[in-house]
């Protein structure tokens, strides 16, 4: 964690390579040491979280950034599965998506997402989001123990 100087492990589940890269760049330019892992769909997201298949040797993430609309398994299902698993449930999940529809927001919170962020309109917006994320979650909030 940030206190021990270890990089923060972040899982980004995002099927749009353009958006994935923007997020990645924003974190690279960020202030906190981090390892960003990117998966492209819900199936890989669950494999990563459960540390199985191709992701056996990966560390459990400290934070999950989740896009709602992904192929194979969408963000809703991932949220549900995270919620069903007592170990995974402790990991903060931030839904990062382009839908501003109210029903999507309510549904996200009902499924225990920790926060819902609309995708920014341009790159500097992504940087702002990362900055806020860093300030709030990584410095101020005490993360649940692994």
């Amino acid at each position: 964690m940030s206190e021990t100087g270890q990089p923060v492990e972040i899982l980004l589940a995002e099927d749009n390579p353009g958006d994935a890269k923007l997020t990645q760049k924003a974190f690279e330019e960020g202030n906190i040491l981090n390892n960003l892992h990117i998966v492209e769909n819900g199936v890989e997201a669950m494999d990563f979280l459960k540390q199985r298949g191709d992701y056996e040797d990966k560390a459990r993430p400290d934070l999950v950034l989740l896009d709602l609309n992904m192929p194979k398994k969408d963000g809703w299902d991932v949220l549900e599965e995270i919620n069903d698993d007592p170990e995974l449930r402790r990991i903060p999940v931030i839904v990062l998506t382009s839908s501003e529809a109210e029903s999507d927001i309510v549904k996200s919170y009902e499924l225990q997402a920790n926060a819902y962020l609309s995708k920014p309109v341009d790159y500097s917006g992504f940087m702002d989001v990362v900055r806020s994320l860093e300030e709030f979650w990584l410095s101020v909030v005490k993360m649940p123990p692994k």
């Binding site: 353009g18 958006d19 760049k25 382009s98 995708k119 790159y123």
Partner: peptide, 13 residues
């Protein structure tokens, strides 16, 4: 919004 975001963001980058 998405194609718009791609254009804005990458021109920015």
């Amino acid at each position: 919004q998405e194609p718009l975001r791609m254009v804005s963001s990458y021109v920015d980058l």
